[in-house]
Design a protein around this nucleic acid. Structure first.
Lengths: 244, 244
DNA sequence: CTATACAGAATTGTCTACAATTGTGTATAC
DNA sequence: GTATACACAATTGTAGACAATTCTGTATAG
């Protein structure tokens, strides 16, 4: 049996779903990684993914480059060949990741404060609304993780989007989603400490209203820093994923 | 007529310089952009580049994705097709870029200060050496821009490499080279103000020796912030490139 | 003279085939 | 039983062809 198949029909090249494959590949693979279907540390084979997504290796390959760009995929650098793996989730990586996000958001927050007072009030209102939603969920003992995560994300995005320029925004967009991996994996434990984060949010809102840039920056940094420590504690208990 | 072509000569496909094309494409194209051979705002055609580098479009394409990742190339987002352009150099972009670099370095500097005193002294010595080289060049009226740039870069890299973790390091590696584009374009004018930067470096070194994290962070941020303002002034005079 | 429609060129997106390299398993020597 | 060599399978890198879309210029209608 020949390893290379003789195509029975020379005709009919599949219809090259023009312009959507790359996008699709990117989002679907990211989804697989974020949801843990592709487990951290595991080894990626282009052809397998291509088969799974029913497309050729080309867009998959490009998508993997994008994912590498965003840190979901890591180049296991041997020689000159690329060997990609799903980026492992380690305590150390989480530490750096959260620290970077904290600083990026801090920088954005600082610029948010530079906005005119009217705009700031509006933002604060929006933020309060999100934070209250979180509080409600807490008191209702409603622990739909995905829902909580979305609200928390909205909170932070509101700040970013009002303060960051295009470049910082892009940076944040590429870094922040990675926190979701940790979130998902340790969600139930993180939620236990949610009330702490909610309080920290209050402080951030107050600082924005007060127009104190330093305080906003500190508040955001602390929120992530503390989140990181809470996460680290959980990782200590449950172990890392994908680092061996 | 068969849809699939019978190649006139079945033989001799060029030898697929395995494992080096992408790398080569990436660095060469980046070189073209940084040196301004591909001017800011101009429009990129994959096939042209491929011809120029004597390789197929495939690695060029990947390289462009990498360059997009690093911000050298921008997606001129129409419909679903990508249309890449060389990222324009604007005052506004410079402002954000420098601000981000300043914060990233500040964060790294903060962690550098956390090192034991012996290590810090060693770093300080290295930094002083670089800064003295700058001073010598200044007093010698030796204005080889490339040389000056290299030394300044070494100065900052020393701090980053001692303080940053892998993630922050990667981030810095991808952002910082972009400053070079501005540097090169406005080099002669920037050099006129070099003495200011040198003084700021002194302050940074002193702060590292003193072990004052806040002061190091502030120093680095200010160094970039001020650099940005000096640059903005020059851009005001000579105009932006590639934004129209 | 201007606006619209259409044809053809230019360019990007995707696919398959092939080349080259790396890793793995098996057979053989010691 | 262990170690080395060799062959083959698995996988990545690149090439070139085709598909589809967008852009450009030109001709024609008003």
């Amino acid at each position: 049996m020949p390893t290379r198949v003789a195509r029975s029909k020379p005709a009919s090249r599949p219809k090259a779903d023009h312009g959507n494959s790359l996008r699709k590949a990117f989002y679907e693979i990211r989804e697989l990684i974020v949801h843990g279907r592709l487990s951290p540390g595991s080894w990626i084979v282009e052809a397998d993914l291509a088969r799974h997504l029913s497309m050729s290796r080309t867009p998959v390959r490009s998508a993997l480059h994008w994912l590498q760009r965003e840190g979901y995929v890591t180049e296991h650098k041997n020689a000159r060949k690329s060997r990609m793996i799903v980026t492992p989730l380690t305590k150390e990586d989480a530490g750096e990741l959260y620290s970077i996000i904290g600083h990026v958001e801090g920088l954005a927050g600082r610029r948010t404060v530079a906005l005119p007072k009217a705009a700031r009030t509006e933002i604060a209102t929006k933020l309060k609304s999100y934070n209250n939603q979180l509080r409600e969920i807490l008191s209702a003992r409603d622990s739909r993780a995905a829902h909580i995560f979305d609200i928390d994300r909205s909170f932070h995005r509101t700040i970013i989007e009002s303060g960051a320029g295009p470049r910082l925004l892009a940076l944040h967009k590429s870094i922040e989603p990675q926190a979701e991996r940790y979130w998902r994996l340790y969600a139930s434990s993180i939620i236990n400490d949610l009330h702490l984060s909610v309080s920290e949010h209050d402080e951030i809102i107050a600082a924005i209203v007060a127009g104190d840039a330093d305080r906003v920056e500190r508040g955001l940094q602390m929120n992530w820093e503390n989140g990181c420590q809470r996460l680290a504690h959980v990782i200590d208990i449950f172990g890392e994923r994908g680092s061996w």
